[in-house]
Amino acid sequence: MFGFFKNKYDNPALLEEIRQTEEKWFVFLDKLETRLDELCTAAVPELIAVFDQDTDPYKRAHGRMLTGLIGQINQMRQKAITAKEERIIPFMYASKSVLPDLISGAGREYHDRLYRFQMACFDRHHQFEDKINEGITALRSAEGNRGLEATYQQQIAEFERIKDKFLCKQCGGKMSIPKMYFIATYIQCPFCQTQNTYTPSTEMQLLFHQARPLAEQRTAHLLRAYETQHPKNPVLYQQYLRAMFDEWNKITPDMVAENERFYLRLLKDHSINHY
């Protein structure tokens, strides 16, 4: 006989090392996950509180807090990646290198064990990555109420209050602002025909940039209807887009021509990208 089966490979120390490394990796990721969970759970109400306290129209304090939190989460993500690259993967290679060649058959069960180790560690890492992404999504969606509709209605009321209260700077004649403007514009005095320059309030000017978010908020249910249906129905998207632009045009009627050109582009992009 050639003694093929006599050379059975035996290395209990390696088996133990594999077991310990796997356990260590799992414990490490468990700890990170617990910390991640704890951070996100505690951060969500705080983010909403900061959002509500933030007087800046762009909500920049909230933005800073959010990027800071995501920075911490990414730090945990990086910790796991570094450990995988520096500890798990090198361990796999180092262990493989001491085993008899795979084709010899002698160390077969060790190769299988290492393969199972690799799969288990990588799967666990994928799960961790999923948790990281879930955490980031939860933080991103933790916003207070922007109150766009209320702000918009307030500005309409404010405009109604002031629109007839201006006097021509040239002749003192009573002037009326014909509609809600979001940018400075020329208005002619009906008495002396002088071109006056009307500048809307800062709040009114800022509101222009909230027109699309407000229109999106008003039509969010239509977008949800599209997004929750599987397979996706492009007709529902088109319905949403049309309704959103209709609302947008109602808020900023002076921009209808420009909005409609943008609408056509979005409609075209959507049909190219998805269908």
Binding site: F166, Q195, T199
Partner: peptide, 9 residues
């Protein structure tokens, strides 16, 4: 800086 609406010539 929040400014009120105004008219100028």
């Amino acid at each position: 800086k929040y400014e009120q609406a105004g008219m100028q010539v």
